[in-house]
């Protein structure tokens, strides 16, 4: 019982000290507050400058590449495009492979009349006029 009384008395005493301590809390100087706010401003400004730079570094092309799967996908597309150009530009010598011989590849197999039926009449007319 005596011990409980003692503890209670100690607590009451300490509470008074704590109250005094809370009332006597240090007040930040205006210099400290200014330094803290300068840091806050500096960090905010640094963030504002970093954001646009990081966006512009990743340009439209990089963004597009990211959408379709990155550089490996772009490499595949480039290969396909090059193959397309080659197929278009290459000599069609092997066309018979595709047509199975239905179309002849020799120019002598065609007469001009087959694609220009009035040509011989035109030639005859020209010859008659020139005489």
């Amino acid at each position: 019982m005596a011990r409980i009384d003692e503890n209670g008395r100690d607590d009451a005493m300490l509470d008074e000290f704590f109250e005094a301590g809370r009332a006597d809390a240090p007040v930040p100087s205006s210099d400290l507050l200014a330094r803290i706010m300068a840091d806050a401003e500096g960090e905010a400004v640094a963030r504002e400058h970093v954001k646009p730079v990081s966006r512009s570094r990743r340009g439209l092309f990089a963004a597009l590449a990211a959408v379709i799967g990155g550089w490996p996908a772009l490499a595949g597309m480039a290969t396909a495009a090059a193959a397309g150009v080659w197929i278009g530009a290459a000599q069609p010598e092997a066309l018979t492979v595709l047509t199975g011989g239905v179309l002849s590849t020799s120019a002598s197999d065609f007469e001009l009349e087959e694609i220009y039926p009035g040509y011989s009449a035109y030639v005859t007319y020209q010859e008659a006029m020139s005489q």
């Binding site: 809390a25 240090p26 930040p28 507050l33 803290i36 706010m37 806050a40 905010a44």
Partner: peptide, 14 residues
Amino acid sequence: ARLLTARLAPRVLG
């Protein structure tokens, strides 16, 4: 930031 400084700096300093 100014409001946070006013609130928190005294406590951290103490």
